[in-house]
Design a binder for these strands. Structure first.
Lengths: 223, 223
DNA sequence: CTGTGTGAACCCCTTCACAGCG
DNA sequence: CGCTGTGAAGGGGTTCACACAG
């Protein structure tokens, strides 16, 4: 907050809920851009995608003033701003640790490259898999080569798709290899040193939440 | 404790954040039970797993009084209560719609049966896949057979693992087949009628959140 | 004396409402 | 006149602190 001028809040104060929504806004804008829409108001953006107009404006305020009063936002212009805020300039190279069914499916998932995340390496400990490739052509390396490959390939994010008991040590290895961002698919929590960010995709929690809904459907709300 | 007096809040008021945490508590308790722990206080449960003791107690309060003052909670007893609250009595049969790499990996994911969710069917529209099985032996049916198989197999939850453009119509089909709980892996939102619950696993939002962290790591918090 | 259950305080996020700019 | 940017109000969720049960 030192060099920040008083008026502008600055990115370091935006909550994770806000930044998650930026991804959603970006997706909506790309959609609109593909449909040829050039300009949009927070109002109609909210109406079309089930969002809240005031929240869109407030979320954006943390990072600057991107709109034109009386008009709205430039679809392509705002999308470019959001990409810059989210650090999506060049494609981001990612690795998948754990070359089981799930790991290989993630490495070959076509949605990732489309969104600017390129899987360039799989890692595993099973000798039988080392040196092979996923169906989509992502090479499988031994875990011990993680630091070297991370450096050589410019990998920035690790996806952890190993059984729960191995998740912590795999995360440790990722951190030791210099990675600062981990997407963890293993159930449970992994702890990491300050400065490293972990996001969890906890399928058990999601499914049990649905089970709860089924068990209490009589009075539950929809969403 | 007896019946529903006005004092007891009741399950219909617990928020989704609370019920998600119940899953986590259950996982911790199973861990402790496996380690032979018979009794635990909210205090030490919180300390061991990085939770907040007051929050654990408050979360549980929505559903009853499960603890013993001065002692704590019975590990197995509380786990049994949570399982009942979450509707985890018998194994819950699930279907995966979309027999691509991701869909098949989900159908064969060993963590699901372990947690009481049994994939019994895959669905797809590609003629080449119909009649085959996943590596793990889950049969692949044509989408048009969804209603019949759902009924015959007692399927309760659909996992949607199809490309984004098909997600909405697949969700519609799932609802039409009588399903009331959907776990959606396709990017974007699907809308469903009241009474149907959708949870989204949005990998793009997660990855872009990590990208944001990488771009702003200088002042970002750890977790 | 220990640890639960719980009102109250606190804090953050969401939503409202409007001043003011284009 | 329309829509953004934004202080203020509102609503929830989290954390505190303590009465009280065992």
């Amino acid at each position: 907050m030192r060099e920040r001028t008083k008026g502008r809040p600055g990115p370091e104060q935006a909550s994770e809920l806000t930044t998650n929504r930026l991804s959603i806004y970006l997706r909506c804008l790309d959609h609109l851009s593909g449909a040829g829409v050039r300009t949009i108001s927070s109002q109609s953006l909210a109406a079309q995608f089930g969002l809240n107009a005031a929240q869109i404006r407030k979320d954006l305020t943390w990072f600057g003033e991107f709109g034109v009063r009386g008009v709205g936002y430039s679809v392509d212009g705002l999308a470019a701003h959001l990409r810059q805020i989210l650090g999506l300039g060049d494609p981001i190279r990612i690795a998948v640790i754990g070359a089981g069914n799930l790991g290989q499916a993630l490495a070959d998932y076509p949605g990732f490259p489309r969104d600017g995340f390129v899987p360039v390496a799989l890692f595993d400990r099973a000798a039988a898999k080392i040196g092979k490739h996923s169906r989509g052509g992502v090479p499988i390396y031994h875990m011990k080569r993680l630091p070297a490959i991370v450096r050589k390939e410019g990998i920035r994010i690790a996806l952890v798709a190993v059984p729960a008991p191995s998740a912590q040590q795999v995360a440790n290895a990722a951190v030791a290899a210099g990675l600062r961002a981990i997407l963890n698919f293993a159930p449970g929590t992994v702890s990491v040193p300050p400065g490293v960010k972990v996001k969890n995709v906890d399928l058990t929690v999601s499914l049990e939440g649905l089970a709860y809904h089924l068990a209490n459907a009589a009075h539950a709300k929809t969403q």
